[in-house]
Simulated scan of single mutants.
Amino acid sequence: MTWFSDPDAVARYAEGPVRLVPGFDSLQRMTTLLLRESVPPAGKVLVLGAGGGLELKRFADNEPGWRFVGVDPSAEMLKLAQATLGPLAERVELHEGYIDTAPDGPFDGATCLLTLHFIPAEERLRTLKEIWRRLLPGAPLVVAHHSFPQSPNEKARWLKRYAAYAVDSGVPASDAERAITAISAQLPVLAPEADEALLKAAGFEDVELFYAGFSFKGWVAYKPA
């Protein structure tokens, strides 16, 4: 999306998730805890959609022995990630691109937060398979993104709730309305059962829902040991 290449918009990125994603701080905290269950103290974690650096900073702050590979298609967002990380950047290797740009690993865990809803279902499955291929046996993948029922009435209801949350967080109503129009028209959002099916089709097992915040859902899944 061109938004992620706009330097002015990127500079304001950190404001967005806090205002638009219910429980954003708790989502990052829970993701850290889920990774910690399986990733060893000196583990290596793949972060797909790492632009901005918010989750990378959270993970690195909380686990001083972990090292990271972050991948994002936006050069501007990666610059922001570098700035957000500050001295923590010495433990992070950043790559501009998509999953095919990521090193083969193997990795002890992976995350993909607020990213997969930009990717059409067919390419999303391939992306998940490529993440799976880069993980060690038993390693976790944590994902979270827009995921809600896709019948017209249910879709409209959940997008209105998303807009209501944004307005309650201080976003102008006109901006919130434009946002849900763009999401409805442009994002290839899937229903939760379809998201779970893709994770399983990619080879993951023990797929568990751990987060639900209005239009957003989050799962943890594992590569078979």
Rank of each mutant, 00 (worst) to 15 (best):
G65H: 01
P192G: 05
P120V: 09
G138L: 04
D206L: 13
D206F: 02
R58V: 12
F4N: 00
F68E: 08
K79Y: 01
F216E: 05
L199Q: 03
E63Y: 10
T84F: 08
G16I: 06
R134F: 03
A164E: 15
G53R: 01
T84V: 02
P152R: 08
P140R: 02
L54N: 06
C112M: 13
R12F: 00
M30N: 13
Q28P: 07
L35A: 03
S38F: 13
V69P: 00
S169P: 09
L114I: 11
A83K: 14
L56E: 00
G49F: 06
R58W: 08
P224K: 02
E63S: 13
L88K: 11
G16F: 15
A176K: 05
I119R: 01
P40T: 01
D100V: 14
T181A: 15
P152L: 06
A11K: 11
R29C: 14
V45Q: 08
R124M: 11
G43E: 09
L78F: 08
M1V: 12
E196K: 06
G16Q: 09
A102V: 00
I119P: 13
M30A: 15
M1P: 13
V21Q: 04
L114R: 03
P188Y: 03
V92N: 00
L88R: 11
G43R: 01
F4K: 00
L88W: 02
Q150W: 01
E55I: 07
I180M: 03
Q28W: 08
A144V: 01
F107E: 02
A221D: 01
V18K: 14
V69L: 01
H117K: 05
A163D: 04
L198P: 00
G23F: 10
A182N: 12
E123Y: 02
G109P: 02
R91Q: 05
R161T: 11
D108R: 06
I183G: 06
S174Q: 11
G65L: 08
F204V: 04
A50E: 02
D195K: 06
M30F: 14
F204E: 11
L136K: 15
V10G: 02
V21W: 09
L78M: 00
P120S: 08
V45C: 10
G16K: 11
V220R: 09
A212V: 07
G65F: 02
P106M: 13
L46Q: 00
P152D: 09
L88I: 04
T181V: 15
G203I: 01
E154T: 06
